[in-house]
Simulated assay, not measured.
Amino acid sequence: MATKSINAKSKRFDVRVPHQVAESVELLKSDGESTGQFVVTALENEIKRRQRKLAKEEPRG
Results as ranks from 00 to 15, higher is better:
Met1Phe: 11
Met1Pro: 00
Met1Glu: 09
Ala2Gln: 11
Ala2Ile: 08
Thr3Gln: 13
Thr3His: 13
Thr3Asn: 13
Lys4Gly: 12
Lys4Arg: 14
Ser5Asn: 14
Ser5Met: 11
Ser5Ile: 11
Ile6Glu: 06
Ile6Tyr: 03
Ala8Thr: 08
Lys9Ile: 04
Lys9Cys: 06
Lys9Ser: 11
Ser10Gln: 11
Ser10Met: 05
Lys11Gly: 12
Arg12Ile: 10
Arg12Leu: 11
Phe13Ala: 11
Phe13Asn: 07
Asp14Met: 08
Asp14Trp: 03
Asp14Val: 14
Val15His: 03
Val15Ile: 15
Val15Leu: 13
Val15Gly: 03
Val15Arg: 01
Val17Cys: 04
Pro18Phe: 04
Pro18Tyr: 05
Pro18Leu: 05
Pro18Lys: 04
His19Ser: 14
His19Cys: 11
His19Trp: 10
His19Val: 14
His19Gly: 08
Gln20Pro: 01
Gln20Arg: 12
Gln20Thr: 08
Gln20Lys: 13
Val21Arg: 04
Val21Asp: 09
Glu23Phe: 08
Glu23Tyr: 09
Glu23Gln: 14
Glu23Leu: 13
Ser24Val: 06
Ser24Arg: 15
Val25Phe: 00
Val25Tyr: 00
Glu26Leu: 08
Glu26Tyr: 05
Glu26Arg: 11
Glu26Pro: 00
Leu27Tyr: 07
Leu27Trp: 07
Leu27Asp: 09
Leu27Ser: 13
Leu27Arg: 15
Leu27Pro: 01
Leu28Ala: 10
Leu28Ile: 06
Lys29Ala: 00
Lys29Thr: 00
Lys29Ile: 01
Ser30Leu: 15
Ser30Ile: 05
Asp31Phe: 08
Asp31His: 13
Asp31Thr: 11
Asp31Arg: 12
Asp31Trp: 09
Gly32Leu: 02
Gly32Ser: 00
Gly32Asn: 01
Glu33Lys: 01
Ser34His: 00
Ser34Asn: 03
Ser34Thr: 02
Ser34Leu: 03
Thr35Val: 15
Thr35Trp: 04
Thr35Cys: 09
Thr35Glu: 11
Gly36Thr: 06
Gln37His: 07
Gln37Ser: 13
Gln37Glu: 15
Phe38Met: 00
Val39Ser: 00
Val39Thr: 02
Thr41Ser: 14
Thr41Phe: 06
Thr41Arg: 12
Ala42Lys: 01
Ala42Arg: 01
Leu43Tyr: 03
Leu43Met: 10
Leu43Trp: 02
Glu44Ser: 05
Glu44Ala: 09
Asn45Gln: 14
Ile47Asn: 04
Ile47Trp: 03
Lys48Arg: 14
Lys48Ser: 12
Arg49Asp: 06
Arg49Phe: 04
Arg49Ala: 10
Arg49Ser: 10
Arg49His: 09
Arg49Ile: 02
Arg50Ala: 02
Gln51Asp: 13
Arg52Trp: 07
Leu54Ser: 06
Leu54Val: 03
Leu54Thr: 02
Leu54Pro: 00
Ala55His: 08
Ala55Leu: 10
Ala55Arg: 11
Ala55Val: 04
Ala55Ser: 13
Lys56Asp: 03
Lys56Cys: 03
Lys56Leu: 07
Glu57Gly: 07
Glu57Met: 15
Glu58Ser: 06
Glu58His: 09
Pro59Thr: 05
Arg60Lys: 14
Arg60Met: 07
Gly61Ala: 15
Gly61His: 10
Gly61Leu: 12
Gly61Tyr: 12
Gly61Ile: 11
